[in-house]
Amino acid sequence: MLRVSKVTLSYGAEPVLEGASLKVETGQFTSLVGPSGSGKSSLLRVVMGLQRPKAGLIDLAAGLGQVGILFQDDALLPWRTARENVALGLRARGASKPEAGREAVSWLWRMGLAGFEERYPRELSGGQRKRVAIAQVLALRPSLLLMDEPFASLDAIVRHRLTQDLLRWVEHEKLSVLLVTHDLEEASQGPRASVRECYHVPIPRPRDLVQARAHPAFGPLLGRLWQDLSEEVGELHAATIQPLRREA
């Protein structure tokens, strides 16, 4: 679905990515874990064509139009209602205004936002804004979904419910997902969590976050991830090498 090969990127003199490579197979959920500042968001920006890398290749089988990205923050257009925000991408792809509006409303309903269609972002809670952002992306029916610490700013309960709702959709649509996070628990939602290795998460799906946590395999896996991650961070400090450069 997506192959990132040896991407090198620096802002000015400071190297951020040095030969970062990873692969997302069709229909798979891949997590990429790294500490803050390790270049995860930068990598996604390169994939989306928002940032030009110094070197490396992005191979997207489906083309950018098939990729949806959920950013770390939910910057919705403040001057557009929830409905208009969701309709935006549909209209950009040629849907007529009423058509896009209807489609947007049905996505808002699906995200549990019936009755909030005409609210401006300012008038929504953080969780609701996130739901609008999700509807905005899913309404375009992407086949690859990139997520950049999508729920980092939300409280635990909202976060849990949103994760569940989103995962259900992902499983239902068999979306390919690349989830980027510094949060190991979030990463373990997917079957492939990578720091420098590929981990198989042996927990049956669909998973519930609470059930998954209670699963006997969860603890040891988390422990291993933590250990590998702290080694990476140690390396980062010791040699100022950026950690995200191994094959997933």
């Binding site: 928002l50 990729v67 949806g68 910057a75 935006l88 991408g89 209209r91 950009a92 905005q136 375009l140």
Partner: peptide, 16 residues
């Protein structure tokens, strides 16, 4: 900048 990037990743061109 985030708004601009958001609109771009949703498929919006110059006019949008």
């Amino acid at each position: 900048r985030r708004l601009i990037e958001r609109v771009k990743t949703l498929g919006g061109g110059r006019w949008v």
